[in-house]
Design a protein around this nucleic acid. Structure first.
Length: 369
RNA sequence: GCGGGUGUAGCUCAGUUGGUUAGAGCGCCUGGUUGUGGUUCAGGAGGUCGUGGGUUCAAUUCCCAUCACUCGCC
């Protein structure tokens, strides 16, 4: 036991079965076990937009995301902690994974400056200079009460403008990972193994296969509970992303959870699961839903705002078992609510889209029985 | 009854000192969105410039009449 503690953590991921390259497993967190493959709805500011936690749970969701960047800026981790931590604050009693803020600094913050120490950027609300470092990100996520803490990484755009910074960002991400681990261990040193949150490292490398391999191997050699693939779905083509997932599939450490960050179009979701990915999150389900786009059996999509649905008395998807479809809300009603900008429309469509992805994940998990 | 004002896209209005395919916002139609800048982004359709005359090479613009709406006064 002592030896094991010295060498590294107890494995928190249990692989139950493999079917071709689909992995059916279980991730053990301090708030219960998560069956994988799993889709994780995004609740950036502490709530899946427009939904009561009971509604999120009813879609089959086992875990949701929160965000270090957003919650740090508003209302601040001290405020959250005073109100009992993220779970008590948000009334979501299942596991919560927090993103580290690395991606948000990359995608949202203007006027950012990246140095070896960390990142400084302006608070978009009031122009205050904010700084985020690997250590600071760990502290915030611990203060929030996250159950799965993500490493603070340096993300690079994969459109034409950003590809020449890939190597620099990768090496910095690795150095930051080591700092994250030291700080994470310091902050959790007094916690019992069953009480401590999990920690995931993030592999980068852009579209360079050698760098990707190197990064994955480095992250997997570190003391992490799971390995995440970052830096995809950030401007590259679908084919480029799929090629990379194909390439990475045999390289993962099978004893750890594999998390593909930010991917969740149904087609990509299936592709990733069939290439060894266990966990995914994506804003598409809820963002599309709020804008009136819903997924249908067969991975098709419909725009509920289209005129042709005005007198359509069918549910979004007649084959769907989500609460929205089962409770008889028609396309015609949803179109009307979208047209008058009633937020109920986005909520009902979000329930449907989240359920759509959860159902896909469930179908893969059923391969185990 | 007298006097003033306004009639331009479905709506609210710009504009043209007379000159190619008359604009905006909203609405409407269609599409985008992949570790969420919640009211988003992009594209598109849509107008006999109230109606009828006149002047002019040319009128949505100037003139006359007329209709509608509106304000004020007897």
């Amino acid at each position: 036991m002592l030896m094991q503690m010295k060498q590294g953590r107890e494995p928190h991921f249990r692989l139950i079965k493999t079917d071709n390259n689909v992995r059916i497993g279980e991730l053990k967190t301090r708030l219960g076990n998560i069956s994988t493959p799993v889709f994780m709805p995004v609740g950036t500011r502490g709530a899946v937009k427009g939904l009561h936690p009971d509604q999120v749970k009813a879609t089959g969701a086992q875990i949701i995301l929160g965000n270090t960047y957003h919650l740090h800026l508003q209302p601040g981790e001290d405020n959250v902690r005073k109100l009992g931590g993220l779970h008590n604050f948000t009334r979501w009693d299942g596991p919560i994974l927090t993103d580290s803020g690395g991606f948000q600094v990359f995608s949202l913050a203007h006027m950012r400056k990246i140095t070896e120490e960390g990142v400084t950027f302006k608070d978009p609300r009031n122009g205050d200079m904010i700084s985020l470092t690997p250590e600071k990100s760990m502290q915030i996520q611990i203060d929030l009460g996250s159950d799965i803490i993500m490493a603070f990484d340096d993300v690079v755009s994969l459109d034409a403008s950003g590809r020449d910074r890939t190597l620099e960002a990768l090496e910095r991400t690795h150095r930051w990972l080591e700092r994250c681990i030291i700080e994470f261990k310091r902050l959790t040193s007094d916690m019992d193994e069953s009480e401590r949150p999990l920690f995931f490292g993030i592999a980068q490398g852009g579209l360079d296969k050698n760098l990707r391999k190197k990064s994955l191997e480095f992250v997997q050699s570190c003391d992490v509970d799971g390995v995440a693939i970052g830096g995809l779905s950030v401007g590259e083509t679908r084919q480029e992303m799929h090629e990379m997932l194909e390439y990475l599939q045999p390289l993962y450490d099978p004893t750890k959870a594999h998390y593909l960050m930010g991917v969740g179009d149904p087609i990509d979701f299936r592709f990733a699961i069939e290439h060894g990915i266990d966990m995914m999150d994506c804003v598409l389900a809820t963002r599309n839903a709020r804008h009136g786009t819903a997924w249908l059996t067969g991975d098709k999509k419909i725009h509920l705002t289209n005129k042709k649905y005005a007198d359509d008395d069918k549910p979004i998807d007649p084959l769907c078992d989500c609460a929205t479809c089962q409770d008889g809300f028609t396309r015609g009603f949803l179109r009307h609510q979208f047209k008058i900008k009633e937020s109920l429309a986005g909520s009902l469509a979000s329930i449907h889209n989240i359920r759509y992805l959860n159902k896909i994940a469930e179908d893969y998990r059923d391969l185990s029985s």
